[in-house]
Design a binder for these strands. Structure first.
Lengths: 190, 190
DNA sequence: GTCTATAACACGATAGAC
DNA sequence: GTCTATCGTGTTATAGAC
């Protein structure tokens, strides 16, 4: 039996959609209330502030990525296999919450109390990503290109998935992850 | 002899930097004026509105990309060579204006009068990009993967360059374009 | 070309009735 | 749990002096 959505969860879900369309700063509490069919003042029975909503959206996603990365690192796989697992991680999380991913990617700078924590999680994630690529180069699994450029290229694509996934609801998410892994790892040249 | 920067150009340049840091909606005319060392009211002797600034930043960049793409299309090169030219185009434009690229990528939805025009330029650009990839598949130059996924992957990386370039001022922009082309086209697998 | 002053309105958030 | 009313502040933009 699926747990029912609380009122706060509903507010956060609707807010994430509006934040994706216009960005955190351009969405007013009156906009959000109207979309919920209530008055702005009523929102405050469920959340403590607008900032509270942004934190809830971003931090839970950032922690999901951190948890997923930690599992990948602990797994005893080849570097290429680890990268494929990371592609799958991004496809899975982005598919489940495309709206929230927009806030994670473009509105993180509006975090207040939790900004430092977010930046630490993001930085650790990137460092772990980089270590996997460098190990792959050392293992002779990965071409000896600049690892930073490789990470930048892969991560840019993975971080942009939320912009593209909503238009591709016909493609299964496991198919997409396989397809994307091939392009990112094998290239496109025949 | 280099043309001197007009006061409006200076305002637009400083605004682009602030827009990159906090986004269009979160930057106030007082913020911008303070950064220029004047009062907010004084800005209006040089620009007609805040919206005017955003338009100036975004539309000129969008037209640069359109012009560059048109040159690539008219050139009589292989599909792979055309893609390499597009990588070079993005690296060149993004290197010259990293701050403006942030607005182009994340604040375009705040355009008012020019929103439709921007969307047409962007859509045409993507269609041209897709045609080049599809021709490459037909020519047997490019692996027969889903062309939309290939375009999404390449374009995501190219559109994110502005986030990454400011930290890599030591790398020459032609070296970066070559390096990036190799990774995007040949992949990373050994 | 910049200033002070201010118009006209929108913002996040709270108080207290129901 | 939602409402009406409102506080205190911030917003873009204009008018007119210097």
């Amino acid at each position: 039996m699926r747990k029912l959505e609380t009122r706060k969860e509903e507010i956060v879900r609707v807010a994430a959609q509006l934040f994706k369309e216009k960005g955190y700063s351009a969405v007013t509490m009156r906009d959000l209330a109207a979309e919920m069919g209530i008055k702005a003042a009523s929102l405050y029975n469920h959340i403590t502030s607008k900032q509270d909503i942004l934190q809830t959206i971003i931090i839970s996603l950032a922690e999901e990525f951190t948890e997923g990365m930690n599992k990948v690192i602990r797994s005893e796989k080849s570097s290429i296999e680890k990268l494929k697992k990371i592609v799958q991680l991004h496809v899975t999380i982005a598919s489940a919450n495309t709206n929230g991913m927009a806030s994670l990617n473009t509105d993180w700078m509006h975090l207040e109390d939790q900004l430092e924590y977010y930046l630490k999680l993001r930085n650790d994630y990137e460092q772990n990503f980089l270590v996997i690529i460098k190990e792959g180069v050392k293992n002779l699994e990965i071409k000896s290109k600049n690892p930073e450029v490789i990470m930048f290229s892969m991560l840019s694509t993975l971080r942009s998935l939320y912009l593209w996934l909503p238009n591709k609801e016909d493609v299964s998410s496991s198919d997409l992850a396989l397809h994307l892994s091939e392009i990112l790892i094998e290239g496109i040249n025949k």
